[in-house]
Computed example of a mutant assay.
Amino acid sequence: MDLFEHQARELFQEHGVLVPRAEVVDSPRAARAAAERLGGRVVVKAQVKTGGRGKAGGVKLAADPAATELTARQLLGMDIKGHTVHRVMVAEPVAVEHEFYVGYVLDRAAGRFMAIVSAEGGMDIEDVAARRPEAVARIAVDPAEGVTEAKAAEIAAAGGLPPETAATIHRLWTVLVAEDALLVEVNPLVLTSDGAIVALDGKVTLDDNARFRQPARGDADDDVARDPLEARAAAAGLNYVKLDGHVGVIGNGAGLVMSTLDVVAGCGARPADFLDIGGGASAQVMADGLSVVLGDPDVRSVLVNVFGGITACDAVADGIVRALDTVTLTKPLVVRLDGNSAARGRAILAELAHPLVHQADTMDGAAARAAELAA
């Protein structure tokens, strides 16, 4: 789960990382009041879960409270890379002497974390990494050993950062471990004119699989900024990701769903979603999943591809029938059932005799039919 900048900075504060004073608001009038409390001259920053805000015009300096109100009015509702700005952060400005980049990211291939640091942080860090890769240091971190104070000093030196950044580098590792994060990034980490090391921005991605260990982070979700279908699916406990195609895809098991996406693409169509009902899904889960997918206006046809194991195919068929009791089916539904109780599941759908429900014997045949119906 990605966090907004203001959520990341709250974690930083809890673990001793210095950040500028700031307030998060959702209206121009509230932005003006925040600027008055922060001294008048402020930085107004759009809160969206994507990078490149500065280049997109989502970070602006305001000279006084009146200018802050006007700036907030411009930013609220703005679209940045497909993300709508619902809130802005009003922060006190900082006198910057030098900008650095510091980040920790999970290196899945190596099975450990990687510290990434550069003495040339800021908006152009991607260009620096592309043009002069030697300016960006990458240091492996053994998760069993972690980042000690000595290791933090080694990381700072490898990136050409001054020794006084080591304490913050160490604290950022504490953030990653304590919060079960997969990514912790500060760009820029700055040296101020009075010698302080301050995180001017922050990006944190938390591990969804560790939520049970982080009950206090339950309020980190943001259903306002979240895709409504993804929020609805999450509320039903479904693994759903919205995609940009027209064939809705439902399957049981991540591997089967991924394979189904590939087969649909191979038939010349684009999947509209990834929805995994899981290995032990009930009829109710199937009904919930179908309801979510049919709620997507981009979907032109739906493909249900289930291999019965723990989830018996007759339970899947019952779920489809139950969903059609509450959802009006206006789009073709192609169903492929195989495995445990497949014959009984097919019979249930045959008895339903719905004109928009089609059955197929193979995954390839089902995908081809769904692609044809979506064309």
Rank of each mutant, 00 (worst) to 15 (best):
N305A: 04
L337R: 01
V44Y: 02
R369G: 10
D262M: 06
C267I: 09
G54L: 09
V85Q: 02
A152F: 07
D26H: 13
T148S: 15
D107P: 02
R171Y: 13
V198L: 12
D219R: 12
V48Y: 00
M123E: 14
A231K: 00
S27A: 10
D127A: 13
R336N: 06
V128L: 08
V96Y: 06
N340W: 11
A66Y: 09
Y240G: 02
I197E: 00
G280Y: 05
E179F: 08
S259I: 11
D276Q: 00
D318V: 10
A167N: 03
A156M: 09
V334H: 00
E120T: 06
A181Q: 02
L11K: 04
L106T: 11
R32V: 12
L191D: 14
G268M: 05
L349S: 04
D223K: 07
E92W: 15
V247S: 01
A152P: 05
F4D: 12
V198C: 09
A8W: 00
N305M: 01
E120D: 15
F212V: 04
L176F: 10
Q47F: 07
L303P: 06
A231G: 11
A235S: 14
E97H: 09
Q214Y: 12
S291H: 15
H170K: 07
D201C: 05
V316M: 11
G122P: 04
F4G: 13
H170S: 07
R29P: 07
R213H: 10
G253H: 07
A196N: 15
E134I: 10
L352I: 06
C313T: 03
V190M: 09
A342K: 00
A269R: 01
D79T: 12
S301G: 07
R232Y: 13
R232A: 14
G365M: 08
V321S: 12
T165E: 02
R112C: 14
D325F: 08
V59H: 07
A91N: 05
V117P: 03
L38F: 06
A272S: 08
L261P: 05
V17S: 01
L329R: 05
L61Q: 10
A350M: 13
G245D: 01
G295Q: 07
M123H: 10
G251R: 00
D364R: 10
V88F: 09
A315K: 14
A153L: 03
A216V: 11
G52R: 00
A199Y: 11
A110T: 08
R73E: 15
E149D: 15
N340Y: 12
P143R: 00
R344W: 14
V184E: 05
K242Y: 13
D219K: 12
Q74T: 11
V264S: 02
C313H: 01
R217T: 09
V357F: 08
G103Q: 05
C267Q: 13
G279P: 08
D208C: 11
V321Y: 06
V299I: 06
K331R: 14
G253S: 08
E99G: 02
I80V: 08
D207I: 07
A181F: 05
E351H: 11
T326I: 15
E23Q: 15
D107E: 10
V90L: 10
